[in-house]
Amino acid sequence: MTTTAETRVPSGRYGLAQVARMEWIKLRSLRSTWWTLVVTAAGTVGIGVAVGVNTRNASGDVTNNALAGVVPGLLLTGVLGVLIMTSEYASGTIRATLAAVPRRPLILAAKAAVFGAVTLVVGEAASFIAFFAVGATLRDGVAAPTLGQPGVLRAVAVTGAAYCLIGLLGLGLGAIIRHTAAAVGVLVAGVYVVAQFIGIMAHGVASYMPILIVANSLSTTMPVTCGTDGASCPDFLSAWAGLGVLALYAVIALAVGGWLLARRDA
């Protein structure tokens, strides 16, 4: 019998492709995934349009205004990232997952690949739709920016990518903390609240705060300046450096989360 049992098992071994397929089925089979993504995109566009309609200064950074909805929208993808991990612990699904895939780092890698791809698509769509929707709804006298103008295409594209990176940061935090409320708390505190304080207190560090990177490095077409008083103005990162720092945060959270996942009891 042992021999017949052996022959039933095909050659080879499960790998990232199989695990990613599992994670894709898990992600798409929860209704909450879809409405969270729809609300994220709709919120991004809606807030952008509202800010765009109220833009009177035609010489300002209209692209930056069009992307104003990104900062609240990011929170939802971050929370969704947290939930992808913590809901497995809350429901006990994690035990079925780990029994199916005992090489645990593969699980987090597959979740990151699938969720990263989905949030990249949704983020880019939200960012570009917001840009064009705002362009179509500006008041008379405020010219709509075009993607051909300096820095505009970069700002819109790089901002879309931020959804993916904040989502992955949430996923990593979820793997580290494992409890939904605590992980969401750390995400919100780390991304939103702490940034406000540090932004006021220590300008040197402020430019490395996720939300300030998104607002001042990614979604702008020109370097942010604070008027004439240069000493009180943080030196914001360039768009690409900002993107790199956000990616670094996501990678660190995922690496620590994967390391802990492999070591802890389920």
Binding site: A5, R8, V9, P10, G12, R13, Y14, M22, E23, I25, K26, S29, L30, R31, S32, S87, E88, S91, G92, T93, I94, R95, A96, A99, A100, V101, P102
Partner: peptide, 28 residues
């Protein structure tokens, strides 16, 4: 190499997400 094809387990506590259908849980 293929854990589920070699060992099947039913654990004490529930191990599925309440928002997912039985079919999707098994398909995953």
């Amino acid at each position: 190499r293929w854990p589920l094809r070699e060992v099947g387990a039913l654990l004490e506590a529930r191990a599925f997400h309440p928002g997912r259908s039985a079919r999707s849980h098994l398909a995953a």
